[in-house]
């Protein structure tokens, strides 16, 4: 039983981090904080992949000429790509936040929704 917990501890902490990021995204109204939450979610997925790739007693997958046991290099490659894509999406998200702030004057979800409703009502009045 104890061995089972020790051998799955990594996955469970990763899931905790993932859910913490998810919680920030769904429960906070501030757009910058939502993007921070997305980032945390992302990093926890990276850690999950790398955890799967770890081989006990293995070393970093670099050939030294001696026969050695390597950790799985394939997840490393996939995550290397994912990190760069992640920063690209972060940059895009933050640019959207800046643009939203420019138009609405706020980065709180509640304010933006209120402004949208006010605009809709104005439109209805104008139509009448």
């Amino acid at each position: 039983m104890f061995q089972f917990i020790a051998s799955h501890y990594n996955y469970w902490i990763v899931i905790f981090l993932m859910m913490a990021g998810f919680y920030i995204v769904v429960s906070r109204g501030n757009l910058v904080k939502k993007i921070v939450g997305l980032n945390i979610f992302q990093v926890s997925v990276f850690l999950l992949y790398i955890s799967i790739g770890k081989v006990a007693g293995g070393t970093a997958p670099i050939l030294t000429g001696k026969p050695e046991l390597f950790s799985n290099p394939l997840p490393h490659v996939l995550i290397l790509t994912a990190i760069v894509v992640g920063v690209a999406t972060t940059a895009l998200g933050l640019a959207l936040v800046v643009r939203i702030r420019e138009v609405y004057g706020s980065i709180e979800e509640a304010d933006i929704q209120a402004a949208n409703e006010a605009m809709e009502q104005e439109d209805v009045k104008a139509a009448q």
Binding site: G53, G86, V87
Partner: peptide, 29 residues
């Protein structure tokens, strides 16, 4: 976890560039 290349990228991109981008956004918002 033996992923030295990934760690390198994460330290440069995650801890470096992302933080700079977010600080830039904060100064604007």
């Amino acid at each position: 976890l033996d992923a030295v290349d990934v760690a390198f990228t994460e330290a440069a991109v995650g801890a470096g560039i992302s933080t700079v981008l977010m600080l830039g956004t904060l100064t604007l918002t």
